[in-house]
Every structure is written in C-alpha cells, then in structure tokens.
Amino acid sequence: MTDGTEPGFIELAEVAKAFQVRRKAGRLRRSRHEVRAVDGISFTVGRGEMVGYIGPNGAGKSTTIKMLTGILVPSSGRIRVAGIDPSRERTRLARRMGVVFGQRTTLWWDLPLRDSYELVRRMYRVPYDTYRKNLDRCVELLDLGPLLATPVRQLSLGQRMRGDIAAALLHDPEVLYLDEPTIGLDVISKARVRDFLREVNASLGTTVLLTTHDLTDIEQLCRRVMVIDHGRLVYDGGLAGLHEVGESERTLVVDLAREMAPIEGVPGARTVKVEGPRQWLAFPASQSAAPVVAAVAERWPLVDLSVREPDIEDVIARMYTGRAE
C-alpha cells in the first residue's frame, strides 16, 4: 500500500530492541540484565534517498540494520520497508533488497566469483537479460573482469568488497543496505566504491542506507545523516546542521608580530592554543568571524590570519562525549 510513491519507503516508528545479557556474578552465578541496543527509534527514508547512519561502536547501528533486513525481530515498534514488515516476510523482502556486510562476505567462500553470481541469479530468479545488464555494468564500473574466475577466499579485502557490492545489486534491489562498506579498504578502493555507490543511487534511484566509521563516506555520498548513540537517534538532518547541534567551533588562527601572552577579552572567543607568535582562538561556528577578527586587529599587532572550518570528526566526537556525560 505504501509502495512506490509515498516518501516513507523505509519507516520506523518507536522501534526498540532489547537483549538479555548474562553476566558473571561470582564464580558460578550469573545475573541477567537487559540491554536496550535500540531504544525507541523513529525515522523515515524516502525512495531514492542516500542516507548515512553513524554512531560509535555498540550504539545500535548494526542492530538497526539487522531489524531492517529482517534478521532480527524488534522487541517493540513498527518497521515497514516498501510496505513490508521485514521480520514477518523476510524472504519476500529479500528479493527487493541488497545487503553488504563489510565484515563478512555474502558470497560463497570457495566458489569463483562468477559461480557465486550465477547462484545469486538463480536464487533471486533474475531474468537473464537483467542479470547480464547488471553484471556488465558492475564488472565495468567496479573493474571485476579479471576477478570473475577467482574463488572468493583468494580475493583481497578491497576486491571482495567490490565483488560483494556487485552481488547485492544483480537483482535490481530497490534498497541497498551497506554495513561498513569501506572498512579496511585502501584509499583507491574506497574511492572506487564511493563512485560506484553514487552512480547507482543517481542513475537507478536505488535507496541507500549505509553505516560507516569513515566520515568521508558520509561527506562524499550523503546529503542526509542520522546519528545514533546509546540506542537513540540524536541527530537526523543535513551534514551542515550537524555543526550547530554538535556545538562545533571554528578556529581563528592569528600570527602576531611577536610572542605575547594569550589573547583575552575578545567577545565570544577564547584562546585555545599558543605557539610562539601564533595563537588559536575558538568561537561558535554559528557566529560570524568578522567581529572576532576586528576585535583582535584593534588591540593586537596582527600580521596574518586564517579561519579554519570545524572538522566533522571533532563534531561527532563531541556529540558522543556530550551525551555520554
């Protein structure tokens, strides 16, 4: 019913997942307690969107992906992907989605890549023409040609990842989930994977949800980013907006005529570092740099200056620590 035209292609409403964890308490006794890996998450992703899903280790990213793909059944809440409840109709949804796990392959370990693809074609009942067309495109864009006869276990990590991504796309999935698709890859492989994902999203309109530790992935691929921490969604919006939420700061770097005591008394700014005649002043990213520059230039012997934009890694790190405290 919600299929196709509606913006909510992926819908989560108050989704939670709690695990019972047994811990050692003394030599033999074990105590049970509940861990809420995902603690009431709601969001929607429209068809054709490409969304980054980030958070520290153990924040609940993988658990969310596992619920979206139907591997795990949520403890509470409602999930719909293309109108389908993933945990109830796992195999029906499987035909319409592609999944890539960065840490483990979905390919058959001992089979050559080509045989794995052939098996995917038959298992997903992909019409031969579609399969041929998709495989050709993947082979070309991911440079898989020389690898097709190689058993998966002999592939390098980067080669395997490219092979896995191709396998996830042979059946024209409407949605592609990638769990850490660039983990452990070298710079060139990362660039190739990113180019390919951008191309797939743009030309085929495939909805993409990816988790990653590498924020460059997000910066280069996603207009929208969701941040999860301690099982809760702490941010959902554009990349730029992250800075405001994360209380990120820009830095004014000033070179003075000589070594001086740390600059004081500039409204909205504070000196964070002094190194010889060079000093660093931090001020809120939302604030204009002009009054800070003017205030410094007025009272100190300014030789040169530059403004540094906030680093997204710092922003995210600050968000995580901010919540943890």
Partner: peptide
C-alpha cells in the same frame, strides 16, 4: 558464532535449506 548465519537470513530462501545445502 562467526555471524555467517546473518548472511543466510538476507537471502530469499529458507535458512534451513541453505544451511543444509551449503558446502
């Protein structure tokens, strides 16, 4: 233990069949 069961759960075939037939 090694998490490869998850891989079988995202394929459009019964998990039992895949476990029995694999290798």
């Amino acid at each position: 233990r090694d998490g490869t069961l998850d891989v079988l759960l995202v394929r459009p075939a019964p998990v039992y069949v895949q476990v029995a037939a694999d290798r």
